[in-house]
Amino acid sequence: MREINLDLFTKSVEKYFAEFNELDSLIIKNYVVVLSNDSKYLAKYVLDYTAAVSIGGDFIGAVYVTFDKQVLSNLINVILGSDNPEHEELVDMAGEIVNTLSGNAREFLGAKFNISIPFVISGNNVNIEFPRLKSPIYILPCSWHDNNFSVCVSFKNSH
């Protein structure tokens, strides 16, 4: 599982930013492995907006992506050319990104890597529970134009 996760989510992030000619401003750091799903260990990775999908089918687990507000705001600007997005647009952008990164994983993991409709939580002071994340959790810290986001993944075969 570790080898697959390391590679495919890095590629998914790169693919996303390459689509908008923004690869040069993207930095992907080394994976962090967290051996507990206790929220106190994960809290330091929670940024302004956190979007998640549950994984089902041949796999069980979850994918979370947590963002600095400015990452979402800048991406909306790149895609739509608009400034100062509303809160609802930031929530929508976060959900769309987790959906896209997870959906792209199906290219490597197959069509039975089933993805739920995304849900999004805003606020970095909230005590987020991660019931679908089971240890080990792989966190891929990234930055884009010096603003941070992280991809958190944890899943295993369901059989």
């Binding site: 997870s102 792209n104 199906r106 290219e107």
Partner: peptide, 9 residues
């Protein structure tokens, strides 16, 4: 237009 961009989908 979908994020589920695997060949089978």
């Amino acid at each position: 237009i979908s994020a589920q961009s695997d060949k089978s989908t």
